[in-house]
Amino acid sequence: MKRRGIVDFLFIFPTAFAFLMVIIVPFFMGIYYAMTDWDGVKTVLNWVGFKNFTGMFSEPQFIYSFQITLLYTVINIVLVNIAGFLMSLLATSRVKGRNFYRAGFFVPNLIGGIVLGYIWQFMFNNVFVDMGKAMGLAAFQTSFIARKETVIWAMSVVNTWQYAGYIMMIYVASIQSIPDSVMEAANVDGANYITRVFKIMMPMMASAFTITIFLTLTNSFKQFDLNATLTNGGPAMLYMGKAVRASQLLAMDIYRTANQFNLMAPAQAKAVVFFVVLVVFSLVQVYLNKRREVEA
């Protein structure tokens, strides 16, 4: 029995050690750095307390980024899940070539976010603009990602295009696990397709919704690669009397604070706030969704 303990320990050790070194230790070091005047290079640090935490809330760009990130997250939870769910219904129906659709919908998810961002930037800035000019459509003649009103929506569309296929796969798996007998019984009882979707399938899939909403929430809240390559935070707009970047989400704001302004400690403080907010939102969401799950 004692021997077993050593073996267990040795098996756990590599993972536990890696987890400790790359997650736990940096996490607490990060909180510590957030309360110093660290600049990323110097090794002698001075304690500044909560100055870095209070400073961020008087910064127009940070306040704006916070709001736009919340908006972006809400838009994406709705868009990605609706698109993913509709696609999963199509991919599990008796329509011809459903396996082809299933693969086709999933493919965008295999393209890296960076490549995807550049491709869509080209689409928005060149293809759509040229199309607009050729067809005389005024709405298309200025790029959607160069307008402050549309840029968040343009980003959401691209994110949905990429991410809905992945979410669809989770729904497909969940739909396939619903016993045929239940669906058949509903059919015999005279429930039409719409009723079956809303009254039978969706309640039976509640655990899948918990997962997909969690994934879309964290994915869009943490969005960075697409943001960086598609819009790079632009265009500029006025907010609280300052020029800010209209599509700079929180993750990117943290990155810029750290690497462009060289304010490593304030950026670290923002990252801590970012982490706390994300954890709170995710926990609340999981708690609320869990209550809706039914035993299948």
Binding site: L238, A243, R256, Q260, F261, N262
Partner: peptide
């Protein structure tokens, strides 16, 4: 200029002049 000032602070202002400010 201080780090980030040209890009982070002036950049958006210069873009604003191009978009109607």
């Amino acid at each position: 200029n201080p780090d980030g000032f040209n890009q982070g602070t002036l950049g958006p202002i210069f873009e604003l002049l191009a978009t109607g400010t």
